[in-house]
Write a protein that binds this DNA or RNA. Structure first.
Ligand SMILES: [Mn+2]
Ligand SMILES: [Mn+2]
Ligand SMILES: [Zn+2]
Ligand SMILES: [Zn+2]
Lengths: 132, 132
DNA sequence: CAGCTATTTAGAACCATTATAAACTATATA
DNA sequence: TATATAGTTTATAATGGTTCTAAATAGCTG
């Protein structure tokens, strides 16, 4: 029930697969970061039926387009997503490839003074790489 | 002659290929951003002999390890490199995938207040995504 | 239910990147 | 200068994340 309206209101049919992916992504105490492979594993662990990898990709991209997920820019061969869609910044642990949310109070407001003609700022993202 | 010492001092043999890649990367008025494919094209345009793609990858990674190049984190299927190895930030034009350097004065100093036990900050990078 | 469109799926294709291993080259040493 | 050795280049294959395809299935509207 919980996610049916969310999906319908977005013009997405509330299929069994999408509802199950919603459970995994959004029915959590905390937000989290994931790659597609990590999400695939999480889904396998939590549900009995199988969801094809293609559907996982399709759904993640659909949710991203609707603004329910964000992509986080990092140097990796895999794409990183975030269920925390608020404006926030990240630590990136180079050792294990894990992201950690930074509170805005940990970074402070960032004011970009330069403008590019005809362009709007869509997002401002700080990535703090961590090493040992 | 110009890059022979640079390479030798880094423990890299100054091969014909590496010297030619140095010319393309570093013998320029301005620093620039590139993907491997763009670099491959630049090399083709500037030199007569052929340098294999494998050598271009090898050399770029060798130079990155030595600190002569930096990788810039963006959401793209291709890896972006920068010949500007100073600490600086970027505009990322989503329309054409081009990076633009931001001066530090355009962003202001960023002071990360949070610490992670046993970890050091390696870099702080701001990515400002631009849309129309 | 009927009809229509959206969605799911297995598998193929794509493509940036990395691995392989044989040929070649820079360099140190005799 | 010749030789030995480790480093480098290269064509090519392999890898692996992501996207595409097209047929089967499922949601939705009348
Ligand atoms: Mn993607
Ligand atoms: Mn790389
Ligand atoms: Zn986050
Ligand atoms: Zn730059």
């Amino acid at each position: 029930m919980k996610y049916i309206d969310k999906l319908r209101n977005s013009g997405l049919r509330p299929t069994k697969q999408r509802l199950q992916i919603c459970e995994v992504l959004f029915n959590t105490e905390r937000t989290f970061h994931f790659t597609i492979n990590e999400l695939e594993q999480k889904i396998k662990d939590r549900i009995d039926n199988k969801i094809s990898l293609a559907t996982i990709y399709n759904t993640v991209h659909a949710f991203e387009k609707k603004g329910y997920l964000k992509q986080i820019p990092v140097n990796s061969n895999q794409t990183y997503f975030d269920t925390n869609i608020t404006d926030h910044h990240h630590f990136y642990n180079l050792k294990d490839g894990k992201l950690i949310d930074l509170e805005n109070s940990d970074v402070g407001p960032i004011n970009i003074k330069r403008k590019i003609d005809g362009k709007k700022i869509k997002s401002i993202e700080v990535l703090v790489k961590l090493e040992d």
